[in-house]
Amino acid sequence: MQTPLLQELDEQYMIQKFELLIKQAYQKGVEDGQTKFTYPPVLTKDHLAEILQIKKPTVDKLIKDFSFPRLQTIQARYPRDAVFAWIENNTAVLDKYLA
């Protein structure tokens, strides 16, 4: 059983941790907004080269991977949000092309 003082310290500690978590989530959101959403909803090969910091021949190899997101109706165009999600979820595939 905690004393009132220990209980109050626990509550203050939890409040501080919660405030830190909120601040970190906010900063992550700002960073995402500054990187992901500065690009248009539909990306080109030039965008991909810039985002991944690779040369166009490497982009050409990467987009041939069956798992890489692409628009079916427009040739050589890639959905921004799906591309960023793919990058986050496919680091092993990405490393294969960047090696």
Rank of each mutant, 00 (worst) to 15 (best):
M1E: 02
M1A: 10
M1W: 00
T3Q: 09
T3R: 13
T3Y: 14
T3K: 15
T3G: 10
T3E: 02
P4N: 07
P4I: 04
P4T: 07
L6S: 06
E8A: 15
L9Q: 06
L9S: 05
D10L: 14
D10C: 14
E11I: 15
Q12H: 07
Q12F: 12
Y13T: 00
Y13D: 03
I15W: 04
I15P: 00
Q16V: 06
F18S: 14
F18N: 13
E19K: 15
L20G: 12
L20V: 10
L20N: 07
L21D: 11
I22T: 14
I22Y: 13
Q24G: 05
Y26C: 02
Y26W: 08
Q27Y: 02
K28A: 14
G29D: 15
G29A: 09
V30T: 10
V30G: 11
V30S: 11
E31K: 11
E31A: 13
D32E: 15
Q34I: 03
Q34K: 06
T35C: 08
K36S: 01
F37W: 14
T38M: 14
Y39W: 10
P40S: 11
P41G: 12
V42L: 05
T44Y: 12
K45V: 04
K45P: 07
D46K: 09
D46E: 13
D46R: 04
D46P: 03
H47E: 03
L48E: 01
L48C: 03
L48I: 07
L48A: 00
A49I: 05
A49H: 07
E50A: 13
I51N: 03
I51R: 04
I51H: 00
L52V: 00
Q53W: 13
I54H: 10
I54T: 03
K55C: 00
K55W: 09
P57I: 00
P57F: 00
V59K: 00
V59Y: 03
D60C: 01
D60I: 02
D60R: 09
K61W: 01
K61N: 12
L62E: 08
L62W: 01
I63F: 03
I63G: 09
K64T: 04
D65G: 01
F66L: 11
F66K: 15
F66V: 09
F66A: 15
S67Y: 06
F68E: 13
P69G: 07
R70Q: 13
R70M: 06
Q72T: 11
Q72I: 02
Q72M: 04
T73M: 13
I74K: 15
Q75I: 01
Q75K: 12
Q75T: 10
Q75R: 15
Q75S: 09
A76C: 14
R77V: 01
R77H: 14
Y78G: 07
Y78R: 02
Y78A: 04
D81F: 00
A82Y: 02
F84R: 00
F84M: 02
A85L: 05
A85C: 04
A85Y: 04
A85R: 07
W86C: 02
W86D: 00
I87R: 06
N89V: 00
A92F: 08
V93E: 09
L94S: 02
D95M: 11
K96Y: 09
K96Q: 11
K96W: 06
L98D: 09
L98E: 11
L98M: 05
A99D: 15
A99H: 11
